[in-house]
Simulated assay, not measured.
Amino acid sequence: MLHIVACIKQVPDTKVIKMNPKTNTMDRSSAPAILNPYDAHAVEEAVRLKRRYGGIVSVLTMGPPPAVKAIRKCVEIGADEGYMISDRAFAGADTLATSYALTKALQKIAKIRPIDLIICGKMTIDGDTGQVGPGIARRLDIPPLTNVKAVVEVNKEKGYALIHRKREDGYEVVQSTLPCLFSVEKEINEVPYAPLPNVLRAARYQPIIWSVDDLEDVDRSQLGLKGSPTIVAKVWPPEKPKGGEMLQGGPREQVEQLMKILLAKKELFRIKEVRS
């Protein structure tokens, strides 16, 4: 029986988030918090593997108390249990500090029930780095399989997993020993609407919440802002493209107009006169 842990995150909905024009930072209060879309596919894949092979799906997140909503969304999808680490000591963490904190939580979960497989989304939509999953794998000294687009087989008895890994020119077939970590693409599955029993269970579900004091052998210098060697200095929206200029007339007239425009901006385009 497999024990699969999906690492998830609650993020602001970037489709509606606004930027503060004075500080050039994201106004997180302007957008609702949602389960990171890539992580939803990770949880769905974990649930599908549970149906194929039997087992338990746990979810783990780090965040403030409202992040409980993201865990409940995972329970709607089909997760069995949820864990959250929440403490001011974790605030301001970059990907390095985040992977460290989640690793400590995973080690505690593994003492409750050994972990066979960890699944993460490819990346979070508020950071787009894709670094946390591989960072966890490195700290746990297990193989990271990134850009997973299909899971062919997970064989606990023989101790291996077989997946298809996405490439720009197709995909490659990769076999790995267990335990290992997947970071999955959105195309790995479709997340269906949750059945009513799952919705009812999720509405009243209370995850296990740990503070930093509940974790073991934690080096506090590697947590939060203190443990983050990188910072986001500035965030700003891309400049909106200006309207183009419409050329009038037939093909000959349009070519003449275009040449006049190019010659007027010859320094910009670095147009050089070529003499025959």
Rank of each mutant, 00 (worst) to 15 (best):
K50F: 06
V154R: 02
K73G: 02
N24Y: 12
D169P: 00
R220V: 06
L215W: 02
A233G: 10
Y205A: 04
Q222M: 11
S211Y: 12
P66I: 13
I34M: 08
E216M: 11
K226V: 10
H164S: 10
K50Q: 12
V232P: 02
M19A: 15
D94L: 06
A93I: 03
A233D: 09
G224Y: 05
R167W: 10
P64W: 06
G135C: 06
T14V: 13
I17D: 01
K122P: 00
R72Y: 09
K158H: 08
Q254S: 10
I125Q: 01
V154H: 00
L225R: 07
M246K: 15
I71E: 03
Y205F: 14
V174R: 12
P207I: 04
N24D: 10
R204T: 06
Y160C: 11
D27C: 06
T61P: 00
G55A: 07
K186E: 10
P241F: 08
L247Y: 11
R139V: 00
V274E: 15
Y38Q: 01
V212K: 09
R72F: 13
A31F: 01
I118V: 15
G133E: 00
A194S: 15
E256V: 11
K158P: 03
K240Q: 15
P195E: 13
S183C: 04
E253P: 01
K226L: 14
R113H: 11
P207F: 04
P241G: 11
E187C: 10
K122N: 08
V16H: 01
L215G: 03
K166E: 15
P12M: 05
G78H: 01
G82T: 01
G92F: 07
I71A: 02
A97E: 03
R52N: 09
L196E: 12
I163H: 04
K234R: 14
A203H: 13
P192Y: 04
V274R: 13
P179L: 08
G82A: 05
V154A: 03
A203N: 14
A40P: 05
K265E: 13
R52P: 01
I56C: 08
R270H: 12
K234T: 09
I109S: 07
E185V: 10
E185C: 11
L145P: 02
L2T: 03
R165G: 01
P12Y: 06
I119L: 08
K265Q: 14
Y160R: 14
I34D: 06
V152R: 06
S30D: 15
I17F: 01
L178D: 03
I136F: 11
F269D: 09
I188E: 00
P114L: 04
G121N: 06
V218Y: 03
L117D: 01
T129L: 00
G82P: 05
D219A: 07
I136E: 02
